[in-house]
Design a binder for these strands. Structure first.
Lengths: 154, 154
DNA sequence: TTCAATTAGTGGCATATGCCACTTTTGCTG
DNA sequence: CAGCAAAAGTGGCATATGCCACTAATTGAA
C-alpha cells in the first residue's frame, strides 16, 4: 500500500491534537459568541483575572504561548477596553497586565456562557473522563520535548 | 475567593486543549522546520496524499476544518508547487486536490523529519499511552456537541 | 423547462500564533 | 564607570482558522 491509509496518518499526535482543538474550539466559540469573545480571549481574560497583575512573560509562560503572540492577541482586548497594561515599578522593561472594570464585567458575563459549554461537554464525556483528559493534556504540554539538536555537544 | 485560582480555570477543557496544542505544535514544527513545512501543512499534504484526489469538502471534513480555512491554508502549498487543484469531471462546482510530484517528494522528506518527532514523543509518553490519548482526542473531535440553541422549538 | 433551494468554493475581514530583528533596560564584570 | 550579555517587549511578516456574504453549478419541484 503505497498510499498510507487514514489510520496511518491519524497516528500523528500533533495532527490529532489540532483536529480536536479545532473541533472543540468551535464549540466553545459558539457558546461564547453572545459575549463577543472567542474561546482564546476568554481564556486569556480568565488567566489575567486569576493572577495578580501578572507580567506579559508570566502570562505567556502560563499559557505556553509565544510572548509576541500574547502581545498580538492582547491587542483587540485592550482596544475593546477589557484589559490594560502598565509598567512595572521596579523594572521598566516589564509590562504588567490587568483587567479593567469593564473587563471584569465581561468576564463574568462570559463565564456564564462558558459554564454552559463546559457542562455540556462534561455531560457527554463524563466529568472524570474529562478530568483525566485534561491531566493528560497538561502532561503533554509540560513534556520537556526537544529534538536532539544537531550539535548538542557544543 | 473572589479570584478563582488557577486550578479553577485549568478546568476549561478547551483552554487545556489549546495549550497542549500550542506546546506540541511547536515541537513538531521545530522538527519539520528543515523541510520548510509547518506541522499543519505536513498534515494537510499527508491527508491529501492518503486520499484519492479528494474534493476540498472531503478534506475539510476529514480534518474538521472550515472549508474556507482549508482554502486559505492550501494557498501557500499551491504557490510553492506542492499541491494542485482541478475541477471535478462531473460536477463543476467541485474542486479536487492532489499532490504534485514535487509535493510527493517534499512529503517523503518531511515524513522522515516527522518520524523523529513522533518517535521522541512516543518514547516520552509511551506508545500505548499515546494511542489512548489520540483515541480520546478523536472521540472528543467527533463528539456531537451543540449548544442548546436559543430556540430549538421553532 | 423554469425557478427556488441547495451545494461547493472564493474573498474579505478578523483573530490566533510563531519567528526574527531590533530597542530599551538591567545586571554583571573588568 | 564603561561595556557587553541577558531579559522583556514590540513590530513586521507569514501561516492558521473562522464567519459571512456572494457566485457558480446542481438538483428538485411546479
Amino acid at each position: 500500500m503505497t498510499k498510507a491509509q487514514k489510520p496511518g496518518f491519524s497516528r500523528c499526535n500533533n495532527a490529532t491534537l489540532r483536529r480536536a482543538a479545532r473541533s472543540l474550539g468551535r464549540f466553545y466559540d459558539d457558546a461564547l459568541a453572545a459575549s463577543g469573545l472567542k474561546g482564546t480571549q476568554f481564556g486569556l481574560l480568565f488567566e489575567i483575572h486569576a493572577s495578580s497583575e501578572p507580567t506579559m512573560g508570566t502570562v505567556a509562560e502560563a499559557l505556553i504561548m509565544d510572548l509576541s503572540a500574547l502581545g498580538h492577541t492582547l491587542k483587540p482586548l485592550i482596544r475593546d477596553g477589557y484589559v490594560e497594561t502598565f509598567a512595572d515599578k521596579d523594572d521598566r522593561r516589564v509590562k504588567r497586565v490587568r483587567l479593567t472594570p469593564r473587563g471584569e464585567v465581561k468576564l463574568d458575563e462570559a463565564i456564564k456562557l462558558w459554564s454552559g459549554a463546559q457542562q455540556q461537554f462534561e455531560e457527554k464525556v463524563g466529568a472524570e473522563q474529562a478530568a483525566k483528559l485534561r491531566a493528560a493534556l497538561d502532561a503533554v504540554a509540560d513534556l520537556d520535548l526537544e529534538m536532539p539538536t544537531a550539535a548538542p555537544s557544543n
